[in-house]
């Protein structure tokens, strides 16, 4: 079943087209990575899907609910971690979570019950009565995520959830995201600047200037848009360059760097007597992004 179905979605601001007729589907239980540089339209998409912004065109369905007609049902089904913190600085963690729980009609006791699984995994006990403004960046992000999970959402939108976090906080966040996917079959809609975080994604969509420029699994995208690099340790000679003629290559002090797109196995098998000392470096999602957009994600 599709958790999200987006067809021909567009968003126009006066003379600027923020989203240019994009279409994609997210299956229930998927980790969906939505990539693009700043201003590509990622947050706009999330704000439309979460019923905050109005679409200019196209259609969106969240499960069976149609955006624009059944918005309250959609709001009940989603949780969002926004790019910027949206909790109140002067309130404690407890007060922030209790008041946000009330937005979903939850009483204090119901919020307590919902929070039981998070108290330990998100290390909430130690910061429970501290004002939000006194928390570190990592602690704040953990509270933001718990806030997004208060209504036990079927879809969790994470807009750059780990940007600026220390490794420990990133691990806590990712452990819980993985738990939600694997144990609770929750759908995760992720935008991130860390390409390694898309490694386990079921589907990746790359957005550039409001248009989808590529989509597929990480493996599909890497084989299509990233080079596999063969590092061949050998002396430089014309005879050896004959072997790799037809491929893009360079020579660095003691080895050749040969760029391959797609399968390298056949080439190595054919040249197994000549190429004996080598390494294979797989193309990364960074390479995919760089090759597609000509820009690095910062």
């Amino acid at each position: 079943m599709n958790a999200i179905t987006v067809s021909d979605l567009s968003k126009e601001y006066k003379e600027h087209l923020a989203l240019d007729h994009i279409s994609f589907e997210v299956k229930e239980g998927e980790l969906f990575a939505y990539l693009g540089e700043n201003g590509a339209g990622k947050s706009t998409t999330i704000n439309i899907l979460s019923t905050v912004l109005k679409k200019s065109g196209g259609s969106v369905k969240v499960f069976d609910y149609e955006l624009g007609k059944e918005d309250d049902e959609i709001r009940d089904a989603i949780g969002i971690v926004f790019q910027n913190s949206v909790l109140d600085n002067k309130l404690t963690v407890k007060e922030n979570l209790y008041t946000r729980g009330a937005y979903y009609g939850l009483s204090g006791r119901q919020v307590d019950e919902r929070l039981v699984p998070f108290m330990r995994s998100f290390e909430l006990s130690e910061i429970w009565n501290r004002k939000y403004e006194t928390l570190s960046g990592g602690q704040r992000r953990r509270v933001d995520i718990v806030r997004a999970l208060l209504n036990d959402p079927k879809i969790l939108f994470l807009d750059e959830p780990t940007t600026g976090l220390d490794p420990k906080s990133r691990k806590i966040v990712w452990d819980h995201i993985n738990y939600l996917r694997r144990e609770k079959n929750r759908t995760i809609f992720l935008t991130t600047h860390y390409m390694e975080e898309t490694r386990d994604a079921d589907q990746v969509v790359i957005l550039d200037q409001g248009k989808i420029i590529a989509k597929g699994t990480p493996a599909e995208l890497k084989s299509k848009y990233a080079h596999t690099r063969l590092i061949w340790y050998t002396d430089r000679s014309g005879e050896r360059e004959e072997v790799i003629n037809g491929y893009e290559f360079t020579y660095d002090s003691d080895h050749y760097n040969v760029m391959f797109q797609g399968n390298i196995t056949d080439f190595l098998y054919q040249n197994k007597s000549r190429i004996t000392d080598y390494e294979i470096v797989k193309g990364s999602m960074d390479d995919v992004f760089l090759n597609l957009t000509g820009k690095e994600l910062v």
């Binding site: 704000n47 979460s50 019923t51 309250d72 009940d76 909790l87």
Partner: peptide, 13 residues
């Protein structure tokens, strides 16, 4: 200004 209203608008209130 701080887009806290987005957090409220995305709830069933």
């Amino acid at each position: 200004e701080n887009k806290i209203d987005y957090d409220i608008l995305a709830t069933p209130v």
